[in-house]
Nucleic acid binder design. Structure first.
Lengths: 113, 113
DNA sequence: CACGTATATTCCTTTCGAGGTATATACAAG
DNA sequence: CTTGTATATACCTCGAAAGGAATATACGTG
């Protein structure tokens, strides 16, 4: 389970991350809110911790988990080239629609090129 | 393999997507460029196709695969809340550094609260 | 139609990760 | 020191997905 991508492939882990985005939570709180067995929560938290997605501070017997930004930023960076791609795509669509609007009756106007 | 996240968890699939971001490619081209056995390429392309990441057009015996934006946009949308989180984080860090700069000698200035 | 090329599919095997149950560890309080 | 609470870990089992090898399908050409 090397990569950021594998880490967030697991739905329960994504749920935990989504929960932590608002505020830090103890294991028990996560357990209750997500209705997830405690060992499951602990195991996923371990994975998230070792991958740098979360960090914990000790408060008596509790551990308070909070989000760390780096791995998600890495994911964001991975998306960058594709973002360029799809904005180009939207532009192309807009131009296409513009052309259709400019020349309305041209039924078989020429697909491709 | 339901989710977008599971699809991109596989490194070879990410490589294929990265390759297609510049231009459409035939299966053979992908095979050569990524030095991947042909059945492997075809199987990953199937997964990507069924998940809507790519589409193919037929050109004689070749199939030309190209990227589709939607699933990656979905991923981008999932990231949005976290983006808000980490920009807040950066802001907090900046404010913190500003304060340190303003009051330099205050060694044990008060952790927490 | 036979053949070559391009791609898809099938079958098999192996690996890995997730969940469940039980148990260990850590801390607080009486 | 015993008990209760909070969290972590160990062990086991199961399913799913990836890779390899072989084969099927589709198309073009002589």
């Amino acid at each position: 389970m090397e990569s950021v991508f594998e880490i967030i492939a697991e739905p329960n882990r994504r749920a935990i991350l989504a929960l932590l985005v608002s505020a830090e939570q103890s294991v028990g709180e996560i357990e209750r809110r997500l209705r997830m067995p405690q060992p499951t929560v602990s195991k996923h938290l371990r994975v998230l911790r070792e991958a740098g997605f979360v960090e914990a501070t000790v408060d008596a017997q509790r551990r308070l988990y909070r989000l760390r930004p780096e791995p998600l930023q890495e994911l964001d960076a991975w998306l960058a080239p594709f973002r360029r791609f799809w904005s180009a795509h939207v532009d192309a669509l807009e131009r296409h629609l513009d052309r259709m609007h400019a020349a309305p009756g041209t039924k078989k106007s020429r697909s491709r090129q």
